[in-house]
Design a protein around this nucleic acid. Structure first.
Length: 659
DNA sequence: TGCGGCTGTCATGAA
DNA sequence: ACTTCATGACAGCCG
């Protein structure tokens, strides 16, 4: 315990992790440092895809930092081994965990922690500490390891004691919901896992499982809210809107300041006032480690297989310090994780590296490690018969793309089950709520990480495929779950548009919708900011062009349809108006005829009453009545009326000619 | 199998 | 010069 405390106080360091296997001993030296503030509740259990612990293990989790600040502590280390506090801060927890052969898909270091805690043979203590840390952070106060030695034992602080089973309860929940969280996760869990779990539950919360579960759920919700509060603030905005904030956050990253509180980012700096989430701290750690490439020395070795198969492989490879390489577990290959970087990059110090480079490196790492995964898929996609875009698709087959894809061949072997899913999230189009990130394929985690934090959490674990023809799966999905997964992926791919599939294949870390809708300035800045291959840039531009043109075409057709409909409506209106006018005309004609008839009758009546000088009736055929200008009525012979009509008619014609 | 509608895409010109 | 928009034309898909 003293060693633990000493190691804890030192902020971590080199950990010697030994896994006892039935066939031998696998020793892994881990350089682990915590970048954690008083850890908030660990709420990422729902993201944990626990598929079972190693066959046998004998490692434990070092105390979580509880010194009230950002401490370098809380590492995995083998039981009974003395920790090296002077070890350089080169933590690669997840990779080491993966190197241990823990068959799960960790999304964050928290996951790895939890897995280790559960998977460890003596997981009770670790879980207790973990739970204590989670509970203490949930309470807003970091439970000091020194001051909370009981918490280390997993039972000192009542809250911590409750949090110990919290992890187990959530784990149990995760295991109890295999279809929702992990397909057939229960089936994947080994019997030893069950034994461990039962043991763990029996120690921690067997007495009050329901209460613990409720508390776990409550704490999960609270901490999830805390965890995602800041992210959601950004996530609510489009990526381009969140770009500035993320940039500012990244500016706070300094390699030399990794373990120090408030140095992770601007957002993290605010942790002095706003507790930094566990996942954030961890994620930053991952990012920085990836950015610095973890290669201050020559500890990186290439996998022999990689050397032979890919002699030009530019990727650095992580040395797990496996003392017994022959006992390396299947899938413990750590090669191909790091992005291709020039040698001079390896020698860069924290002061040398610009933060923008970090982003590029991260994206480069991301893209490079992901790119070649689906190289075959890409070719298939581009050769697909339904590819209508001759122009764009032709451009996909350029030498640049081939070269760049081949530049990261190690990833082909580094199976990344997480990567493909990650793309699903990236290309999905819309940011999903963090609470929804617990998808079985954890498909949307990247989106938020990349676009809203601009810190690319490369949780990819490059494991050698178990079979030559294996896909990007980091491990084999057993039986039913694999079918479910494949079916899900098929359905997902089927629902994707062509550009979405292309973007997915090229691992464009933006959704098609974002690419299309983001302002041109943001788009251009994105192109210039990230390390994108020509192929990716071309694809991005094509996606944007096609997307905008698609919308324009839709608008055009809609507009055309509206015009047609309006014209039809106008035609109907005009026809109705015409009918109305016809009816009015008929009515007017009818009225005119009536008026004429009345006038004729009146005329006859007037003539019948007229008498000449001799008292005889006036013949209407010889005379006509005419109104003068003064209103008087004159009886004029029709001959004069006819001549007068001719004169007036001629005058009118003359006037018309003049006009 | 042909047809019409819908949709995506490209080419082109205008703003 | 670049981007966006509008639109005709074409092709593929589908009922």
């Amino acid at each position: 315990m003293k060693q633990l405390k000493r190691w804890w106080s030192a902020g971590g360091g080199l950990l010697h992790l030994t896994v006892l296997l039935s066939s031998g001993v696998l020793r892994v030296d881990l350089d682990l440092y915590l970048l954690l503030p008083p850890p908030p509740p660990i709420l990422l259990r729902d993201e944990l895809l626990f598929l079972g612990p190693p066959a046998s293990s004998a490692y434990e989790l070092s105390p979580v930092s509880t010194s009230g600040g950002w401490g370098r502590a809380g590492r995995l280390h083998p039981k009974g081994r003395e920790l090296d506090p002077a070890a350089p801060p080169e933590g690669q927890l997840l990779r080491e965990v993966r190197a241990l052969g823990v068959p799960f898909i960790p999304r964050t270091r928290v996951d790895a922690w939890l897995v280790h805690s559960v998977a460890a043979g003596d997981a009770d203590e670790a879980h207790g500490r973990l739970g204590a840390a989670a509970a203490s952070s949930a309470g807003g106060a970091g439970a000091s390891l020194d001051g909370g030695g009981q918490a280390v034992q997993g039972g000192g602080d009542p809250q911590a004691a409750r949090s110990g089973p919290l992890g187990a309860a959530e784990e149990e929940k995760a295991l109890a919901e295999p279809t929702a969280q992990v397909p057939d996760a229960g089936g994947c869990a080994s019997e030893e896992n069950e034994v461990l779990r039962e043991k763990h539950e029996g120690v921690d919360h067997s007495s009050q499982p329901e209460e613990n579960e409720e508390r776990a759920s409550a704490q999960k919700e609270n901490s999830f809210q805390q965890n995602n509060e800041n992210e959601n603030k950004i996530a609510e905005k489009p990526n381009w809107e969140a770009e500035k904030s993320t940039e500012s956050r990244n500016e706070g990253i300094s390699l030399g300041d990794i373990p120090l509180p408030g140095c992770i980012s601007d957002g993290m700096n605010s942790s002095a006032h706003h507790p930094v989430t566990f996942s954030q701290a961890i994620s930053q750690d991952v990012n920085l480690h990836e950015a610095i490439l973890l290669c201050p020395n020559n500890t990186f070795v290439r996998d022999p297989v990689e050397k032979t198969s890919q002699p030009q492989e530019p990727f650095l490879q992580f040395n797990s310090h496996t003392t017994n390489p022959e006992q390396t577990l299947p899938g413990t290959n750590l090669t191909g994780f790091l992005p291709p970087v020039d040698n001079h990059m390896r020698n860069l110090t924290s002061q040398d590296l610009d933060l923008n480079i970090f982003d590029e490196i991260d994206l480069m790492s991301l893209l490079a490690t992901e790119n070649d995964l689906d190289q075959i898929d890409i070719s298939q996609l581009f050769d697909e018969p339904d590819s209508e875009s001759g122009l764009s698709l032709n451009s996909y087959h350029n030498s640049t793309s081939v070269t760049k894809f081949n530049s990261s061949p190690s990833v082909c072997e580094g199976a990344t089950g997480y990567s493909s899913d990650y793309d699903l999230g990236a290309v999905g189009g819309y940011y999903q709520e963090p609470s929804k990130l617990c998808h079985v394929d954890h498909d949307s985690g990247f989106h938020g990480d990349l676009t809203f934090q601009h810190v690319f959490h490369n949780h990819t674990y490059h494991l050698k495929p178990s079979a030559p023809g294996s896909t990007s799966e980091p491990f084999s999905w057993p039986g039913k779950s694999q079918k479910i997964r494949s079916r899900y992926l098929e359905d997902t791919d089927r629902n994707l548009s062509r550009d979405e599939r292309h973007a997915k294949a090229l691992h464009i870390p933006f959704s098609v919708d974002e690419i299309v809708r983001m302002p041109v300035d943001s788009f251009n800045s994105m192109l210039s900011r990230y390390y994108l291959t020509d192929l990716q840039v071309s694809l991005l531009r094509d996606i944007r062009r096609r997307g905008k043109n698609k919308v324009a075409a839709q608008n055009c057709r809609k507009r055309k349809l509206d015009i047609i409909l309006n014209l039809e409506y106008d035609v109907c209106n005009l026809q109705a108006k015409k009918e109305t006018l016809k009816r009015e005309r008929a009515q007017c004609n009818k009225a005119i005829n009536i008026m004429k008839q009345k006038l004729h009758d009146l005329y006859r009546d007037v003539f019948s009453r007229l008498r000449d000088d001799q008292g005889r009736p006036v013949n209407p055929n010889l005379y006509a009545l005419q109104c003068s200008h003064d209103g008087s009525i004159l009886l004029i012979p029709k001959e004069l009326v006819a001549s007068g009509h001719k004169k007036e008619t001629q005058k009118g014609k003359r006037k018309e000619r003049r006009n």
